[in-house]
């Protein structure tokens, strides 16, 4: 029985793998079936995981269970549950979440904009300073290095590659920033610098593209290894 089940799993995974690969030729019922399975099962999977982690694990354990226990105790005169580790603030989240559901009732659906506004405000506020610190300040600081020396170690690395490298980093970062300037048209000396900037960006994109190819191939090697090896047993 277990052996049979193992075979079933092996064939199921191979069936789905080939279904997705068939999309490369063109859209077809096999792909549509794999897609339907993927969407349905993964949507269910993530909801269940979110529900247990966030709703149960964070809200219910952190506040909900206690609150209802407390109300129940007050009504029936029983023992009030212990409040250790309870954070009643979590109710704010639950109430905002509930307001979200009011969209289902057209008349008061506009209330759902409150949680939306809350989320947008929180996201905007939360990231603003964060981005100034990690994106702007850290990067500016990292660029402030002597032109003909390496940043590493105490020694004065005077190799040609290192010197050209630091100069290139300085020129590239500077001209790249000029490219992003919105206030000035790209003309004259300013335009020339901006053009140098875009050239640097292009090298960046080409290089990162080429660098990623290897890891992308590894993924395909893994899948084909599964098909030919695990499934068909053709690889010794």
């Amino acid at each position: 029985m277990e052996v049979l089940f193992e075979h079933f799993r092996l064939w199921l995974a191979a069936f789905l793998t080939l279904g997705i690969f068939s999309f490369l030729y063109k859209d077809n019922p096999w792909y549509k079936l794999s897609e339907a399975i993927f969407v349905g099962i993964s949507a269910g999977y993530w909801f269940v995981v979110l529900f247990w982690d966030n709703f149960y694990g964070k809200f219910w354990v952190g506040a909900g269970d206690y609150t209802f226990g407390w109300i129940g105790a007050k009504l029936s005169g029983g023992e009030v549950p212990s409040s250790s580790g309870i954070d009643l603030m979590l109710w704010v989240g639950a109430i905002l979440g509930f307001l979200m559901l009011l969209r289902l009732i057209p008349k008061i659906g506009w209330l759902s904009r409150w949680p939306l506004a809350f989320i947008v405000g929180a996201t905007a506020g939360l990231w603003l300073i964060n981005y100034v610190a990690s994106n702007v300040m850290v990067q500016v600081q990292a660029t402030m290095v002597p032109l003909f020396s390496s940043t590493f170690g105490s020694g004065f690395d005077s190799s040609l590659g290192a010197i050209i490298g630091t100069i290139v980093i300085f020129v590239g970062t500077f001209s790249g920033l000029v490219y992003f300037f919105f206030s000035k048209a790209h003309t004259g000396a300013f335009g020339t610098t901006a053009k140098i900037g875009i050239l640097f960006l292009m090298i960046t994109f080409g290089a990162s593209f080429g660098y990623t190819v290897m890891s992308r191939m590894s993924l395909l090697i893994g899948r084909i290894d599964y098909l030919l090896g695990d499934w068909l047993g053709m690889i010794k």
């Binding site: 290139v168 980093i169 020129v171 970062t173 001209s175 640097f200 960046t204 290089a207």
Partner: peptide, 10 residues
């Protein structure tokens, strides 16, 4: 070098 420079500007 050039790649790092471009990344930083971005």
């Amino acid at each position: 070098s050039p790649n790092l420079a471009g990344q930083r500007a971005i």
